[in-house]
Amino acid sequence: MTTRWLRLFVAGLTLSGLGCARTVAVEVHGKGETPIPPHVTYAVFPAIEVEKDPAFSAYARLVAKKMNEQGYKETEARTARLAVYLAYGVSELSPGTMSRGSSTLGTPGAMGAAGGGTYGTSVAASDPSTVRQFTSQVVIAIGDLPKSREAGSLVEFWRGNATATGLTKDLSTLMPLLVEAAFRHFGQTTGGTVRHTFGEEEIKKLRETH
Rank of each mutant, 00 (worst) to 15 (best):
T189E: 06
F134M: 01
A162H: 13
G101T: 06
S122I: 12
G112R: 03
E150C: 01
S103E: 07
V155Y: 02
T173W: 10
F134H: 14
Q133G: 02
S129R: 09
T189M: 06
L145I: 01
E92K: 12
T97W: 06
A113G: 02
G160R: 10
A151G: 13
K147I: 02
L167V: 11
R100Y: 11
A113V: 00
P128Y: 00
S94Q: 13
S94V: 05
W158H: 07
P146M: 14
V179T: 14
D144I: 02
T163E: 10
D144H: 03
A162E: 11
A162C: 15
F186E: 05
G187E: 02
A162I: 09
R100D: 07
Q137I: 10
T104M: 13
S122W: 12
G106Y: 04
F134P: 04
S129M: 05
F134E: 02
A124K: 15
G101E: 05
H185Y: 15
G101L: 10
A162L: 13
D127T: 01
T130D: 06
G120F: 05
S136D: 06
F157A: 05
G166V: 00
P95E: 05
S122T: 15
S136P: 03
G112K: 11
P176V: 12
E92L: 03
V179E: 11
A162Q: 14
G143R: 02
S103H: 10
L174S: 04
A110W: 01
G143E: 06
M111T: 09
T163C: 11
Q188N: 10
E150V: 05
S122H: 13
G143W: 01
R184Q: 15
T168P: 09
F186P: 09
G112L: 02
G143T: 01
V123F: 15
G109L: 05
S99R: 14
D170T: 14
E150P: 02
D170V: 12
S148H: 06
G152M: 07
P146D: 09
T163K: 11
M98T: 13
L171M: 13
A114T: 08
Y119L: 00
Q133L: 11
S99T: 10
L145A: 04
G143I: 01
R159L: 07
F157P: 01
D127H: 00
V155F: 03
D144V: 01
L145M: 05
L174N: 03
G143C: 03
L167P: 04
A162K: 09
S148C: 07
D170W: 08
L145D: 03
R132Y: 07
Q188V: 03
T189S: 15
K147L: 13
E180I: 00
S99K: 14
E156G: 04
L177S: 12
A182S: 08
G117T: 07
A181I: 08
M111Q: 06
L171I: 14
Q188A: 14
A124L: 14
